[in-house]
């Protein structure tokens, strides 16, 4: 156990970032209820810096409204951020045009939450899997495509004889495998999994997680793994970032974030998950947060978490803390970091 943790930490130091987010803000305008109502924006992401290291997995945890899904869309290039840079290999992907952009796009692929919705219902699996090669015809010569597609099917554990079937003929887990096959067809460097296993049944989820990890090892992929299943994120990630209301509030290696969490929100989040309390060797006491997360339209002033924080002080509502290095070597956005145990009244 301990051994793996150290191993992962060393890798984290050794490899360099393949993707980097710098000062990302993503603000969406809200439809006005009346013509002259004050203009409002949803601050889905409000100043996010993150690094994705080569051949590693960055896990993102947080509750709905924290900006995880927007993060996936910005990282994949589906949406252009309001502010900030999305760097792939040091190049801002949103500044590329035309052929360069298409070439870049190949490197970053997204695996969606709903496997059925992510496959065109009117196409056979063969058509779905040939699409990447039709878009990039120079990648695989026409004669070799059939073999390549069959190879992809085998890689994700599907029977190549089923290429003529339609997506609805497959089970949810198999549909997700098709989605993954399409995602890796163009040999991407980064695979973004936005709740990619959340919609699957427990017994099937484990199969797909194993598949993703096998592929990572074989193809040297980097993952950004976004999920609300905290146990799975712990299992698959090398590094983890906790998000709250459009901000990263804690980040570090998985061991730092899960076993030495310093931000009160991360601690409360992890303690609320029954699967973590049950599947852990160290006892976690349930820290019950009050209420729901506030709306990202009107985030609280100062530290965004102060409205629900069990150890909030008056100063927390006055100004927002920076992400700062802790004694354990990871980063926390809190004026009073450290374990909550013993500090609650």
């Amino acid at each position: 156990m301990l051994h793996t943790a150290i191993d992962n930490d060393e890798r984290a130091v050794a490899s360099s970032p393949i993707m980097e987010l710098r000062g990302i803000k993503m603000h969406y305008p809200v439809a006005k209820p009346m013509p002259f109502a004050p203009k409002k924006v949803v601050k889905a992401l409000d100043g996010v810096d993150l690094k994705v290291l080569g051949s590693q997995t960055l896990g993102i945890i947080g509750e709905s409204g924290c900006g995880k899904s927007t993060l996936a869309r910005v990282l994949s290039g589906l949406e252009k951020p309001t502010e900030g840079k999305v760097l792939f290999d040091g190049v801002d992907i949103n500044e590329l045009r035309g052929a360069e952009r298409a070439a870049m796009r190949r490197n970053i692929q997204l695996i969606f939450q709903d496997p059925y919705a992510s496959l065109d219902p009117r196409m056979t699996v063969e058509q779905i899997l040939s699409e990447p090669f039709e878009i990039h015809p120079d990648l695989v010569p026409k004669g070799g495509r059939k073999a390549k597609i069959a190879e992809l099917m085998e890689l994700v554990g599907l029977n190549p004889d089923h290429l003529g079937r339609y997506p609805h003929n497959f089970s949810g887990g198999q549909q997700q495998r098709i989605g993954i096959a399409r995602g890796i067809a163009l040999n991407p460097k980064v695979l973004i999994c936005d709740e990619a296993v959340s919609a699957l049944d427990v017994s099937v989820r484990a199969q797909v997680v194993n598949l993703l990890q096998d592929l990572q090892r074989e193809l040297g992929l980097s993952f950004v793994f976004i999920a609300h299943d905290l146990q799975i994120v712990r299992h698959i990630s090398d590094a983890v970032a906790t998000m709250y209301l459009g901000r990263v509030v804690e980040q570090g290696s998985y061991a730092q974030v899960y076993d030495h969490s310093s931000h009160p929100y991360t601690q409360a989040l992890l303690s609320a998950a029954p699967e973590l309390r049950q599947g852990s060797n160290t006892a976690r006491e349930l820290i019950m947060l009050q209420g729901d997360p506030p709306s990202p339209i009107d985030p609280p002033a100062g530290c965004r978490f102060h409205t629900r924080c069990p150890i909030a002080q008056p100063s927390c509502s006055a100004s927002e803390p920076d992400l700062e290095e802790t004694a354990q070597g990871h980063q926390v956005r809190c004026f009073f970091p450290g374990p909550l145990a013993g500090r609650l009244n």
Binding site: L78, R105, R106, L110, S118, L119, D120, R122, H136
Partner: peptide, 26 residues
Amino acid sequence: NREYVQAAKLLGASNGRIIKKHIVPN
């Protein structure tokens, strides 16, 4: 806004291709 259309965009498909192959048939 269906996910398969987004997936095609991520593969680098042109607007014309997306309209012809995914949008219109569906």
